[in-house]
């Protein structure tokens, strides 16, 4: 299945191949995030999640995952407890 897709795409013109490859390469290059910025990203993720649940701040990991034809930001956080209000859409003004 994958092979047949590959064979199908190998008929693509080299200009298109170059463009598609560059889209991924530039994405990967731009995702080589500096440590300080990565630290900021972590803290901001923690801040957002903390509004809805109690989480283990030590447990967070954020990394860039680079596959052959995709790039992703993968974050893992241990949840200790979920606040009940997270299930309703009311905002807590008390």
């Amino acid at each position: 299945m994958l092979d047949s897709i590959k064979r199908f795409f190998s008929d693509k013109k080299s200009g298109k191949v170059a463009r598609d490859r560059m889209q991924i390469v530039l994405l990967h290059d731009r995702l080589s995030i500096e440590p300080e910025i990565m630290e900021n990203i972590k803290n901001e993720i923690l801040a957002v999640l903390s509004k809805y649940m109690e989480i283990d701040h030590q447990s967070i990991s954020v990394r860039v995952e680079q596959g052959k034809d995709y790039a992703a930001i993968v974050s893992n956080v241990h949840v200790k407890r979920v606040f009940r209000q997270a299930h309703t859409h009311t905002t807590n003004t008390g």
């Binding site: 013109k13 080299s14 200009g15 170059a18 463009r19 889209q23 530039l26």
Partner: peptide, 17 residues
């Protein structure tokens, strides 16, 4: 010529990249 026959990235492609 190369762009027309598909063997060079178009200028639009480069701008959007």
């Amino acid at each position: 010529k190369m762009i027309k026959r598909g063997d060079m990235m178009s200028t639009e492609d480069i701008c959007s990249l």
